[in-house]
Structure formats: structure tokens, C-alpha cells
């Protein structure tokens, strides 16, 4: 293969890792899609009935299990949590968005590890002395921290690492989509976290979907004013990304102007009058929560067994 072809393919592969997740984010999910998976909608399935504190605990357990066990346990958890999206309101749409987010996580993480991981680690992880080279980079790529070649073991290794993140990110979205900030506030206060701290979380939970909405407006206006007008259509997602960055300052200024009203609204309704609050509907532990806690205990026990059987974290990842 001649020098030019090698360089072109290498740079295409280089950009694939950075660009493809962005393409998924902006083209398949869109800013409005992100808005929908970061916003609460009332519904009646089990996640909505669960105490937010239990959901937070579940998120922590998922994180612990994913980080101390072998990759395929993380993969199984990812699949289960993703499937559980179908029980949410507008479940099919949320499942598809979750699927795209998972793809984004997998591709992004794999590409963040595959070309960089030193051969010595891969050899130890895969108990092999010979790695399978898929593509040899031009020598100057080592300046960016790349290994001389991309190996199949590097890709598998990156994929396995992505399984540590995928389940946790899906689980955290479950909390945001199925609990109102007020419910989170009640639960966190009950475990002793100060109101002023939890209130910041409440305001953040309410603001995040609005940020996506406003950035979406800003980007669309920039397109109308000619952003990307002299470039081919396939580059639009990247212009969209650049427009989103440009829109951050006006969006923040806009939100800060409104934040004064938010502070006035809270302070003139006796917020922080006392160190604690009472609640119209105190957060109770229901049947579903008890079942969830039992499930978590079971998960911890199984994790212990799995680790003892040699499927624990660390090298070698593939058992």
C-alpha cells in the first residue's frame, strides 16, 4: 500500500473514534433526544414507584459490580438495564436512545483505549506473546501516544473496558428520568445531606433539559444565519457541534439571568428557614424498594462468589 493511502486510512481511523460517537449523539439522538432522557415524566411502572435513595444505591451497586468483575458481567448488566428502559414512559423511544448512548460509550471508550494501550499490558491480559496486527500506523502517530499498530487484542481490550461505564451511565439516567428533583431532595435529606446541597442538585436536574433545549435553538439559529453553508451536508453534525459550543455562553448568560428569579422564588417561600423540612408525601420504603434491596444484596453476594471464582477485576480480563 502506498504512503498516501496508508495516511488517508490512518487519519480516517483516527477521526472515526472521535467523530462517530459525536455523529450518533447529534444525528441519531439529537439535542431534543438528550432533553427527553434527562427529564422526568410521570408514569406508573416499577422504577417510578421506587424510592430515589434506593435508585441511587442501585446505581452505586451497579458501578461497584461493573468495576470489580469481569467485563461480560458488565455487558449483561448493560443489556438488562437497557431492556428495562422499555418499562419507562415512551419506553420504545427511550430504549432506542439508550441503545445509541450505549453504542456511543462503547465506540468512544474502545477507541480511547485500543490504539494507546501498551503491548505489554495486552500480552499479559490475553496471555499471549503474539498480538494480531490489524493496521500499522504511520510512524509519526507515536507522537500522539499511539502504539505502532492497532491490534485486535487492543480493540477487544477497549471494548471490555467500555463495559465498566455503559451500565453505570444507563443506570444514572434511570434516576433522572423516573424521579422528580423533589423526591431526590426528600430522600437525600432523610439520609442527612443538607438541604442547601440537595437543592443545588434539584435545580441542576431541572436546568439540564432546558440547557439542551436552548442550545438546540441557538444552533438552529446559527444554521439559519449560514453556519456550514459552504460545506457538504455530511459535515453538518460537526458544524452542529461547533454551533453548540458557540451557544454555551449566551445560554449560560440567559440561565444566570433567570437564576436570580429562581433564588428569589425559593427564598421568598421560606427555603432554608429551618435545617430540615417536612413533606407532604414523606418518602417511604415500599414493597418494590424491599425487593430492590434484596436484589442488590443478591448482586453483592453473587459478585463475591464470581470474584472468588476468578472472574474478578484486573488482568486478565478474559478469564
Amino acid at each position: 500500500m502506498n504512503w498516501l493511502t496508508v495516511n488517508i486510512i490512518s487519519w480516517l481511523l483516527f477521526f472515526f473514534g472521535a467523530a462517530f460517537p459525536v455523529l450518533i449523539l447529534l444525528k441519531a439522538i439529537g439535542l431534543t433526544g438528550l432533553m427527553k432522557v434527562t427529564r422526568y415524566e410521570s408514569y406508573h411502572s416499577f422504577y417510578y414507584k421506587m424510592n430515589p435513595a434506593v435508585k441511587i444505591m442501585l446505581g452505586i451497586i451497579v458501578m461497584v459490580v461493573a468495576s470489580v468483575t469481569i467485563w461480560w458481567i458488565g455487558a449483561i448488566m448493560t443489556a438488562i438495564i437497557l431492556a428495562s428502559y422499555l418499562t419507562l414512559k415512551d419506553g420504545k423511544r427511550k430504549f432506542i436512545t439508550g441503545l445509541f448512548l450505549t453504542m456511543m460509550t462503547i465506540i468512544g471508550t474502545t477507541w480511547a483505549f485500543a490504539p494507546y494501550t501498551p503491548y505489554v499490558i495486552l500480552e499479559e491480559a490475553f496471555h499471549t506473546g503474539s498480538l494480531t496486527t490489524l493496521w500499522t500506523w504511520p510512524s509519526y502517530f507515536t507522537v500522539m501516544g499511539y502504539q505502532p499498530a492497532l491490534t485486535s487484542q487492543g480493540i477487544v481490550y477497549g471494548f471490555q473496558i467500555s463495559m465498566r461505564f455503559a451500565a453505570v451511565s444507563l443506570m444514572s439516567l434511570v434516576l433522572v428520568m423516573t424521579s422528580t428533583p423533589s423526591q431526590v431532595l426528600r430522600s437525600l435529606n432523610k439520609v442527612g445531606i443538607p438541604t442547601s446541597l440537595t437543592f443545588s442538585l434539584v435545580v441542576a436536574m431541572r436546568t439540564i433539559p432546558r440547557i439542551f433545549e436552548y442550545i438546540d435553538t441557538s444552533v438552529k439559529i446559527q444554521f439559519m444565519k449560514g453556519l456550514g453553508s459552504n460545506s457538504p451536508a455530511f459535515l453538518r453534525p460537526f458544524y452542529m457541534l461547533s454551533g453548540a459550543f458557540s451557544g454555551i455562553v449566551p445560554v449560560i448568560v440567559f440561565l444566570v439571568r433567570g437564576a436570580k428569579d429562581t433564588a428569589i422564588s425559593a427564598d421568598t417561600r421560606a427555603f432554608r428557614a429551618y435545617s430540615k423540612r417536612t413533606y407532604m408525601y414523606p418518602m417511604a420504603i415500599g414493597k418494590i424498594d424491599k425487593m430492590a434491596v434484596s436484589f442488590m444484596v443478591l448482586m453483592i453476594l453473587l459478585t463475591g462468589i464470581v470474584v472468588m471464582l476468578g472472574f474478578g477485576r484486573g488482568i486478565a480480563y478474559n478469564g
Binding site: 422528580t180 431541572r206 421560606a270 427555603f271 428557614a273 417536612t278 413533606y279 407532604m280
Partner: peptide, 24 residues
């Protein structure tokens, strides 16, 4: 839009009395 802090109407209306630590 800036004044309303909560996700459901009932939670919003109850916000002030809850801050006053009133009985349920």
C-alpha cells in the same frame, strides 16, 4: 418558568409549606 422549581404541580404548591416545617 424561572419561578417554578418543581416537576409536578402538587410538589410546587407544597414547596413553601414544607419549608415552614408544617405538619403533613
Amino acid at each position: 418558568e424561572n419561578q417554578v422549581l418543581n416537576y409536578t404541580v402538587e410538589e410546587e404548591v407544597a414547596f413553601g409549606p414544607e419549608n415552614l416545617c408544617l405538619e403533613q
